[in-house]
Amino acid sequence: MGNGSGVSRGDRNRNTRLARLRELVPLSNAIVGIDLADAKQMVVVTDHDSKVLARKTFRCRAWNLGVALDWAAK
């Protein structure tokens, strides 16, 4: 059974979580997300509103992420 607004409980929870994160992260900062795997790591840089600014795959082990963090800092 759907609701009339078209917004699911999951959507509302996600929006609430993002609103809390936006309060914590200043507008001038970026957020770096890293998906850790065995030999291939995915790095994403987003802005304050979770808009993807840059995305790159690094073929390295998790303990060798210095190059990836240097890239994300630029």
Rank of each mutant, 00 (worst) to 15 (best):
M1K: 04
M1A: 03
G2Y: 04
N3H: 13
N3M: 12
N3I: 12
N3Y: 08
G4V: 07
G4R: 11
G6V: 02
G6E: 06
V7Y: 11
R9K: 13
D11S: 12
R12V: 13
R12W: 07
N13R: 08
N13P: 02
R14Y: 06
R14H: 07
N15C: 10
T16R: 00
T16L: 00
T16F: 02
T16P: 00
R17K: 02
R17Q: 02
R17N: 00
L18V: 01
L18K: 01
R20F: 07
R20W: 06
L21M: 04
L21N: 10
L21W: 05
R22Q: 08
R22L: 03
E23N: 13
E23A: 08
E23G: 15
E23I: 04
E23S: 12
V25K: 01
V25D: 00
P26F: 00
P26H: 01
P26G: 00
L27K: 13
L27W: 04
L27E: 12
S28C: 09
S28G: 05
N29D: 07
A30I: 01
A30L: 06
V32N: 07
V32C: 14
V32R: 05
G33C: 09
G33K: 11
G33V: 10
G33T: 05
I34Y: 10
I34D: 08
D35G: 14
D35L: 06
L36R: 04
L36S: 05
A37C: 03
A37D: 08
A37N: 14
A39T: 15
K40P: 05
K40A: 09
Q41I: 04
Q41M: 06
Q41P: 07
M42G: 05
M42D: 10
V43K: 07
V44S: 09
V45N: 03
V45E: 01
T46L: 09
H48C: 01
H48V: 02
K51N: 12
V52L: 11
V52I: 15
L53W: 02
R55S: 11
R55Y: 07
T57E: 08
T57H: 03
T57M: 03
T57Q: 05
R59K: 15
R59Q: 15
C60T: 11
C60A: 10
R61Q: 05
A62P: 03
A62M: 09
A62G: 04
A62Q: 13
W63D: 13
N64K: 11
N64P: 02
N64R: 07
N64W: 00
L65G: 05
L65C: 06
G66F: 08
G66T: 12
G66V: 10
A68P: 02
A68V: 03
L69M: 14
L69K: 03
D70H: 11
W71E: 08
A72R: 11
A72Y: 08
A73G: 05
A73M: 04
K74C: 07
